[in-house]
């Protein structure tokens, strides 16, 4: 009897590993909400990427690259914008790992995103590579 149940567990593990191959689950309500929030914020962030004030950091966040490009009265709001974006990004990486049943994947998800944000950044935007900022 124990043997039979073991075969059952074996087959279950086999089917689980097969289902994990294809795609990563990104359609959870939490991920959708983060995506929409970031999409709305992007209209405010895009000019900052273009001016070079804000760049795409190597850890999958956005960072204030050159504060002197931001007019003094704007610096507070821009800092808040960056903080809000990074909070969403951190939550996004965590939620994707969780939605796929592997919270320990968070760091790998973050690394993958950091690479893809940098790869897909528009020409003229600044991305961080090996610790230094590079203009695309």
């Amino acid at each position: 009897m124990k043997f039979i149940s073991f075969i059952g567990a074996f087959l279950l593990a086999l089917s689980l590993s097969a289902s994990a191959q294809g795609n990563l689950e990104i359609d959870s309500p939490a991920i959708g909400a983060l995506q929409r929030s970031m999409q709305q914020r992007h209209t405010q962030l895009a000019p900052l990427y273009t001016s070079g004030a804000v760049g795409l950091a190597a850890d999958g966040t956005v960072a204030l690259r050159d504060a002197s490009l931001v007019p003094l009265p704007q610096r507070g709001p821009v800092a808040a914008l960056i903080a809000a974006e990074n909070a969403d990004r951190g939550a996004l990486y965590r939620e994707i790992a969780r939605a796929n049943g592997h919270p320990e994947w968070e760091a790998d998800v973050r690394k993958t995103f950091a690479q893809r944000w940098a790869d897909r950044a528009q020409a003229g935007w600044w991305v961080q590579k090996d610790g230094s900022w590079v203009k695309k």
Partner: peptide
């Protein structure tokens, strides 16, 4: 970690 699937997912979100 399914790196290829993660890249596809990242691209869709980006």
């Amino acid at each position: 970690f399914p790196a290829a699937a993660a890249e596809k997912a990242a691209d869709r979100i980006i």
